[in-house]
Simulated assay, not measured.
Amino acid sequence: MSGWARRLFPGLDPADCARIEGLPVQMLPQGAHLFAPGTRAEAFAIVLSGRIEVSLTGPSGREILLYAVEPGQSCIQTTLGLLGNEPYSGDALCVGPVRLVLIPAAQFHALMASSEAFRGFVFRALAGRMSDMTALLERVAFTRVEARLAAALLELARDGTVEATHADLAARIGSAREVVSRRLESMARRGLVATDRGRVALRDQAALVRLSLAV
């Protein structure tokens, strides 16, 4: 994957690109945690392949999926941790095998101080993530649970089937597992879906699309 840093950071000095690409590529297995609540950011992660999901768990045990980090994207919690020296509040889980490069904190701060191209990438990514977080807050606050659930099912479906537990779906839409279970039962009675352990089959996608757009 020679040249990936140049593609990711257009305009970055060739020497800085070479130093970044000279960092070791790390392999994390499915189920590995990149960070956990209370730990501190020690490096800026660049995902080369795979997907990392960052979630937040409240005192009640309810979990919400904040965002996912995929190739070419950054992690807002890590950026804020490095810039503000604050501990992580979320948990980052590899949902499959992940290949990544970790830019040590000292190198990250040096690049932020010296490279306009690198600063631009970091701040554009930060702005995009903040926009995503605002959109998530709006969905949770102003969109009905059933509409959020329908939208999540449509997004996750592969060949008309969603492979996810009720707890996974609840975390994705910012609700409780019991609520998701009741909503899925209601959808099943209306012929919109069929449920099985860890699986939801979409029976009426057109109706689910209409439901996802309801306010």
Rank of each mutant, 00 (worst) to 15 (best):
L192G: 06
P24W: 02
P104N: 03
D91G: 13
M187R: 11
D196H: 13
R197C: 05
P71A: 09
A157N: 08
G31P: 01
D159E: 15
G84C: 11
V69W: 12
F123Q: 01
A43D: 05
M187F: 14
L28A: 06
Y88P: 05
A167C: 13
M187Q: 12
A15D: 06
V122G: 00
D13Y: 03
F118S: 03
L28Y: 00
M130K: 06
L23Q: 05
F118N: 05
G50A: 04
A167F: 12
L66H: 10
S114I: 11
L211M: 11
V209Y: 11
R199H: 07
Q73T: 04
G96N: 04
T143A: 08
R177V: 10
M27I: 06
W4D: 09
A152S: 08
S60P: 01
A117C: 07
P24Y: 02
R99T: 00
R148P: 01
E86W: 09
A105V: 15
L12S: 04
C75E: 07
L66Y: 10
A41N: 08
P71D: 07
E146I: 14
L126I: 01
E138R: 14
A194R: 15
V98Y: 00
A176H: 08
S131D: 13
P87Q: 09
I52E: 12
R182Y: 06
I64N: 07
D13I: 00
T195E: 08
Q107P: 02
L83D: 06
S2G: 13
L211I: 04
L82K: 06
R144A: 12
T165N: 08
C94Y: 00
C94T: 00
L23V: 01
L136Q: 01
L202K: 08
I52P: 13
A92Y: 02
L156W: 06
A5W: 03
S89Q: 15
H33L: 15
R124W: 05
Q205Y: 01
R139E: 13
L136P: 03
I173C: 02
V215C: 14
L83Q: 09
G96M: 06
G72C: 09
A176E: 13
A201E: 12
R19C: 00
R148A: 00
M112Y: 03
V25L: 09
R139V: 02
T195W: 05
G198C: 10
M187E: 09
H109F: 10
N85M: 05
V179H: 12
L48G: 01
A167E: 15
E178C: 06
R158M: 13
L48D: 00
E42V: 15
I76P: 07
G84P: 02
R7W: 11
F118W: 01
A127P: 03
P71R: 09
S131G: 14
W4H: 09
R199V: 15
G174T: 08
P14F: 00
L202N: 05
A176N: 05
L136M: 04
R210E: 13
A127D: 10
L213Y: 06
M130A: 10
T79W: 05
L56Y: 13
Q73L: 08
A164S: 04
I52K: 14
C75V: 03
T143R: 14
G128V: 00
S186E: 15
